[in-house]
Computed example of a mutant assay.
Amino acid sequence: MPDVPEVPVAPEGREPAVTPVRVVVALCLAAPFVAMLWVSSYAKADPAFIGIPFFYWYQMLWVLISTALTMVAYRLWQRDQRARTARRGGADR
């Protein structure tokens, strides 16, 4: 099992809700939305790729990037949940 980073414990004994892993998960899930909502960054025809205007291939590239980022976020979330369950002694299973 890979080393699990130590999560700081809140004064009441509860784990904090916002951890570095959860911030990375949120960024992975938010990045595609920000990229697609910032239309002025890709609303142009050049550079074309194999005859396809930039506007179209850029969006299709984000389909693949979004898939990869969602997979990363899911794996990180699973790892975080397993680590939290293990620290609580497996009480949630």
Rank of each mutant, 00 (worst) to 15 (best):
M1F: 10
P2A: 15
D3P: 08
D3C: 06
V4M: 08
P5G: 07
P5V: 04
P5R: 06
E6T: 15
V7Y: 03
V7Q: 08
V9H: 01
E15W: 08
A17D: 10
T19Y: 05
P20D: 05
V21N: 07
R22M: 11
V24T: 11
V24G: 02
V24E: 00
V25H: 01
V25D: 00
L27K: 01
L27W: 04
L27T: 07
C28T: 00
C28A: 10
C28E: 01
L29F: 03
A31P: 00
F33Y: 08
F33G: 13
F33T: 14
V34S: 02
V34K: 03
V34H: 02
L37Q: 12
L37I: 09
W38G: 03
S40H: 08
S41W: 08
Y42V: 02
Y42W: 13
Y42H: 04
K44F: 05
K44N: 03
A45G: 12
A45M: 13
P47S: 04
G51H: 02
I52T: 14
I52G: 08
I52R: 07
W57V: 06
Y58C: 08
M60D: 10
L61T: 15
L61C: 13
L64P: 03
L64D: 11
I65V: 15
I65F: 14
S66N: 05
S66Y: 01
T67H: 07
L69D: 03
T70E: 06
Y74H: 13
L76R: 08
Q78S: 14
R79P: 04
R79F: 11
Q81N: 12
R82K: 13
A83Y: 01
T85D: 12
A86M: 06
A86K: 10
R87D: 06
G89F: 02
G90H: 02
D92G: 02
D92T: 09
D92L: 11
R93I: 12
R93Q: 09
